[in-house]
Design a protein around this nucleic acid. Structure first.
Length: 749
DNA sequence: TCTTAAGCTGTTTTT
DNA sequence: CAGCTTAAGA
């Protein structure tokens, strides 16, 4: 059976499969059958070389990719395939850390903090250190810390490295190192690791415990890394160490598709791989089987402008296919309408399914306009990523209960649930308890169980009740399976009742979401593949799941997602929307030449998802943060060789001057253009003689200045009891109704 | 301590 | 715009 597959491979593919020993690097262009090669290679190892599946470790980028590969191998060689180690870096090494964590002083039931938890923790640390949270923004600080961890810089190294300190000093953030230190200490106290810790601590484990390293080196005789261009130093060193004994390391990647630098991915890993392994065997897969010539050439024409890349020549034998179609819309809403209409028509004309279409965008917020348009035409769609199910408040709340029952030291979980539902324990009490734990250097749980010594009577009683509840949950969790325990926790905690009583639409949704979480747990328990049916096991399972890993692809839907999450997928028809300067390429990324190159690679990834036809679209105006902005076409549109492009005339003519009225059902209305303002007008520096004045005698006709909105003229004043409303026309922001911020107004005349 | 409402602020991508 | 924080009143 394997032989059939071997003969179906082209020569370089075959080489890649058959070269099983020693270091191998496969440079795989887009659509070159990479996954196929990888799966056949693994099947070949097991089948032809009689390698025990337990000895093969494959690291992929997403859980989805891992599952898909597993299924494919299973089809090739049967159930044996299940025994290979396959998963993301994070999930595989989290699994290993569950076993080995005690060696690092962590309990095996450590919690994994997602970035929301991390940010929240940083926020409280910044507050405790009495630092300005506008200077030390959680996002910025976290990415700084994360960057350090990805490069294996511990907080000890960080605060002693003169270069890093100088860097922070220059950025006017000299105390990031201290925050890093406190952050790590708090994580440790909470028995928690963040995403980066999973890899960082694996490195520490392998560094400090040669016996353990050796154990895994012996176990994994073959190591394979997919999407190698997206590994960071921390990940790279792990694989290098694991493969050090047997040297059977096979990495697969495409430098042209490296799009995760912001997460610490280092393209040098792939560019310099040869230096680390002088006897490296390199295979290039350059034939594209996926896309038409026009699409391949378009992608090539953009990527050719990048300076730093490995030489390769991606080509295809496929037909020319249709030209790339360029669509121009008046607004983001019309862009959505054009895309939706095109899908509708193409679907009917060519007898396609919804699932043959994908809409790709640079930022998640762009999905709005697309959704609305699709909904109006009754086209089923599904959004991948964005606010994931597990990030919703109600889900996080219930999960926080689960987490806290399993790990009593989980501070972030504690803060979420201690007073939700309301039980009369306010912020003051919570802070007192945390301070007590910190000052006496005792576990949080000890403070909670002895609340009488730290809190006034009423609050202490409430905490005691809370404590009893948690204890009873713990007993249930230990005795029952995940589903029964979870249901009981949801009910007894009062959370379910709280949501049930909320009869608003959002409330109903939240209630349903919680039910859905319980269903997911039921599914987990009923799945015979899961041996450990405890709630703790379920938590571990999903901590590293992302939205796209959920298998809901049974229905026929158009797929909407960011370019980042589209990697590895393919669709017959692909729309890349929002081709506007500052959006794609992103303004934030346009700092240096390297960053522009990464945006080009992003375009490369997006366009090579398409098999048959590629559409590019842009809008002339777009709502962003409640403000309508002017847009300019992306520079990428000029960088593409124009011979591959045709402009969609039919739709572009109909657009001039047609704006839709706010929520009118009538659709197009030929109204005068709404005022278009630039974002720069938003920040106003008050004039030197600005002083907020007593505005008691504010009246219509007054000229005023506001620190944020700038200069304006009062149109009218309305009085409702004690409250006053001022309708003011601001020069840059148009009409505004100020209710309270009178204090910030300054009357000029 | 809880509720309500105004004010403020982000503004990229994800394990 | 939307989600969060803050401030004031109950």
């Amino acid at each position: 059976m394997i032989m059939d597959y071997l003969s179906s491979l082209n020569p370089p593919q075959k080489e890649a499969v058959e070269r099983t020993e020693g270091p191998v690097m496969i440079i795989a262009g887009a659509g070159s059958g990479k996954t196929r090669v990888l799966t056949i290679r693994i099947a070949h190892l097991i089948h032809a070389h009689k390698v025990d599946p337990f000895q093969i470790l494959s690291l992929t980028f997403t859980n989805k990719a891992a599952n898909e590969m597993k299924q494919r191998i299973e089809r090739l060689i049967g159930l044996e395939a299940r025994n290979t180690w396959m998963g993301t870096f994070h999930s595989v090494f989290a699994k290993i850390l569950r076993v080995e964590a005690p060696k690092l002083g962590y309990p095996g039931n450590f919690t994994i903090y997602d970035s929301d938890d991390s940010k929240s923790l940083i926020r409280s640390i910044v507050k405790e250190m009495r630092l300005d949270d506008k200077v030390y923004k959680a996002n910025t600080v976290l990415s700084r810390i994360s960057g350090a961890k990805n490069r294996l810089i511990s907080w000890e190294t960080y605060i002693n490295d003169p270069f890093i300190l100088a860097d922070d000093e220059a950025a006017m953030k000299p105390r990031v190192g201290e925050i890093y230190k406190n952050y790590q200490k708090r994580l440790f106290r909470s028995s928690a690791m963040d995403f980066d810790d999973l890899l960082f601590n694996t490195n520490v484990l392998f560094r400090d415990h040669p016996d353990i390293l050796n154990k895994y080196q012996q176990r994994f005789r073959y190591v394979m890394v997919d999407e190698f261009q997206d590994t960071n130093l921390s990940q790279y060193l792990i694989t290098k160490k694991l493969a050090a004994v047997h040297q059977n390391i096979c990495v697969v990647g495409d430098d042209a598709q490296s799009i995760y630098a912001f997460r610490g991915a280092d393209i040098q890993n792939i560019l310099n791989f040869e230096k680390d392994y002088p006897d490296l065997f390199v295979v290039k897969l350059e034939q594209n089987y996926r896309s038409t010539k026009n699409i391949v050439e378009t992608a090539n024409s953009i990527i050719a402008r990048n300076k730093s890349q490995l030489k390769k020549n991606v080509w295809t034998q496929n037909d020319n296919g249709d030209l790339i179609e360029l669509m121009k819309a008046a607004s983001d809403n019309e862009e959505g309408r054009m895309v939706a209409t095109t899908i509708f028509e193409e679907k009917n004309n060519k007898k396609l399914n919804n699932s043959d279409f994908a809409i790709l965008y640079r930022t998640n917020s762009q999905s709005r306009a697309m959704e609305e348009a699709l909904r109006k035409l009754g086209i089923a769609y599904r959004i991948v990523g964005g606010l994931s199910f597990y990030q919703r408040k109600e889900i996080k709340d219930l999960m926080a209960y689960f987490r806290f029952v399993v790990n009593h030291e989980d501070e972030e979980a504690f803060k979420r649930i201690i007073n939700y539902p309301k039980r009369g324990i306010g912020n003051t009490s919570v802070e007192k308890m945390m301070v007590a734990a910190y000052e006496h250097d005792i576990p949080l749980w000890e403070v909670i169980t002895n609340s009488k010594s730290f809190l006034p009577g009423r609050a202490a009683n409430a905490v005691e009740d809370f404590c009893t509840t948690i204890r009873s949950f713990k007993i249930e969790v230990e005795r029952k399976d995940a589903f029964e325990a979870a249901t009981s926790v949801a009910k007894q905690s009062g959370l379910l009742r709280e949501l049930y009583e909320d009869k608003t639409i959002e409330g109903l949704n939240r209630y349903e979401n919680v039910q859905e979480l319980l269903n997911a747990i039921k599914e987990y328990v009923d799945n015979p593949e899961n041996e450990d049916k405890s709630l703790g096991a379920f938590l571990q399972e999903i901590a590293l799941l992302t939205d796209e890993d959920q298998n809901k692809d049974s229905q026929d839907t158009v797929t909407l997602m960011t370019i980042h999450s589209s990697k590895g997928l393919e669709f017959k028809y692909v729309f890349v929307v929002g081709m506007e300067e500052d959006l794609f390429p992103s303004q934030m990324m346009m700092q240096s030449r390297e960053d522009l190159e990464e945006e080009r690679r992003l375009f490369y990834v997006a366009s090579t998802r398409a098999m048959d036809k590629l559409y590019l679209s842009y809008a002339l105006t777009r709502y962003r943060y409640g403000r309508l902005l002017n847009c300019e076409p992306s520079r990428f549109l000029e960088e593409i060789d124009p011979t591959f492009i045709k402009v969609n005339k039919k739709l572009s003519t109909s657009m001039s001057g047609s704006f839709r009225e706010s929520e009118g059902k009538s659709g197009f209305v030929g109204l005068k253009k709404p005022p278009v303002r630039n974002a720069t007008a938003r920040v106003h520096s008050p004039s030197p003689d600005f002083k907020p004045s007593n505005t008691n005698n504010l009246a219509a006709g007054n000229k005023v200045e506001h620190p944020k909105f700038g200069f304006g003229k009062v149109i009218s004043i309305e009085t409702e009891g004690v409250n006053r409303k001022a309708h003011i026309h601001f020069d840059h922001f148009g009409d505004k109704t100020l209710l309270l911020s009178f204090a910030k107004l300054h009357i000029i005349e």
